Amino acid sequence: LIIEGPSFDPIFSPNRYIYQVYMGLGGSVLIFFVLFLLWTRPITRYIKQIEEGINRIVNKDWTYSIPVKGKNELSFLAKNINWMTEQMRKRFEKERKVEQAKNELITNLSHDLRTPLTSIIGYLTLVKDKQYKNSEELEKYIQTTYGISFKLKNLLDELFEYTKLSLPDVDMQFQEVDLGGVLYQLAGEYTPMFENRGLSVKVEIPDEAVFISLDIEKMIRVFDNLLSNAEKYSHESGDIEIDLYTNDKQVITRISNTTDQINSEELSYLFDKFYRMDKARSSEVAGSGIGLSIAKRIVELHQGEIWAESEKEKITMYVALPFPHDKEEKEIIYEDL
């Protein structure tokens, strides 16, 4: 049986084939382009964000921080830019503090030096114009001028010392010292001055060594200032007490003396620059009102605390300094030595 019909063999068409190839290639390119845009869009946006951040930094907005996204080259770049910005900010703040310290020094000098300079000029004018009755009065004018000049020099020295300590890069030379031994030595040096004024001295310092990390030269300045104030402002035949004790975290020095009762408001200003109590201002006690400010700054540089308390006719100054973190290890070393 033979059956004949139309043939169903595919007929090859070159035009149709080329069309299909172009369509497939075009579709692939389109898909690739869409996927490329979807993949690069976050990166482009992040680059734009970094660019905007750099523009803000260039305009001195050093508080701005570029977000760090992911872990790739761009995030590494953002992290480095943030580090650079932080360094620039610290440098700017340091320079600003230095400038503020300079301006403060100029302001304080013009304010606090006017009175002694005026007095010196006044006395020298009297001498220059020979407005004195005799040689004794002339000598008095000269001695008074010399005394005021000496006070002026001390004031300038303290002003420059305070300004130097106020700078952000104060040079500190720490070393391990026996604080009890230092206080014993200072108390011995001041005892003759105390006794000349009829002041009785009571010292209570532990027999065992109390080692602590200090800039010894600067810390002696603190205790010297406190002992000097105790001598200057104590009542005649009063008492001065010097104590040293410790707790788990601090070494505390207590220096007290008898004086006029001080109210809490005045106590809060004692460590301010140029502050002197009314009694001190009206007396002949020498002082610039900056010594306690210097003491406070030095204690702060040691990460410590300084404060004053008053009860009736007794004022007490406290200096609390922190023990080093490896206190126990240091004690073992000192015992072996």
Rank of each mutant, 00 (worst) to 15 (best):
Y269V: 11
A308M: 08
Y132L: 14
V68Y: 02
F274L: 10
A209M: 09
G238V: 12
Y275M: 13
P116I: 00
K314D: 01
E305K: 00
E208R: 00
L301I: 09
L199Q: 03
V177E: 11
F323E: 13
E266G: 00
E86L: 11
E265T: 03
Q173K: 12
G122F: 01
V203R: 03
I333R: 08
G180N: 06
E241L: 15
F36P: 05
H111D: 15
D61C: 07
S282W: 13
L270A: 05
W307Y: 12
R16V: 15
A101E: 10
G5S: 07
F323W: 09
P206F: 05
D224V: 07
I255H: 00
F160M: 15
L165P: 08
Y19S: 14
I121M: 08
R16T: 12
I66E: 00
G5W: 03
D169P: 03
E204M: 04
V170C: 03
E104N: 11
H302A: 05
G238H: 04
I298W: 04
E217Q: 07
K60A: 14
N257G: 05
A280G: 06
S237C: 09
F92M: 15
M193F: 15
L270G: 01
G147F: 08
E189K: 04
G181Y: 09
Q175Y: 02
Q261K: 08
D248R: 06
T145Q: 00
K133V: 15
T44K: 04
R114H: 09
Q303R: 10
K79C: 13
I106H: 07
N55Y: 07
P206R: 01
V201Y: 03
K71Q: 10
K232T: 11
M172A: 02
I212F: 00
I333T: 06
K249M: 14
L337P: 06
D239M: 08
D169T: 05
I54R: 04
T253W: 07
G53F: 00
T125Q: 03
L117N: 14
V34C: 01
G181W: 02
M172D: 12
N134M: 12
E329A: 13
G53K: 04
V203K: 02
I81G: 02
G53A: 01
D9P: 10
N55H: 08
F211D: 09
L1E: 11
E231T: 09
E208A: 13
I47L: 11
P67N: 07
I81M: 09
V29R: 01
L138Y: 02
S234F: 01
T107S: 12
V201C: 10
H111T: 15
Y275G: 04
A308G: 05
V170E: 07
S135E: 14
L199W: 01
M88T: 07
P322G: 07
Y245D: 14
L37G: 05
V98A: 10
K153N: 14
K71M: 14
V21T: 04
F211C: 14
K90N: 12
K140P: 03
G287R: 03
P168I: 07
N15D: 14
I50H: 03
L30F: 03
V177R: 01
F274Q: 15
T44S: 09
F36L: 12
E136H: 07
L117F: 03
G70Q: 04
N263T: 06
K69R: 02
I220P: 01
N80A: 14
V182T: 03
G291W: 01
P14I: 15
S293P: 02
S110G: 11
D260S: 10
D224K: 01
L35G: 05
A286W: 12
S288W: 01
I18M: 09
F8Y: 06
K133W: 15
Y245V: 14
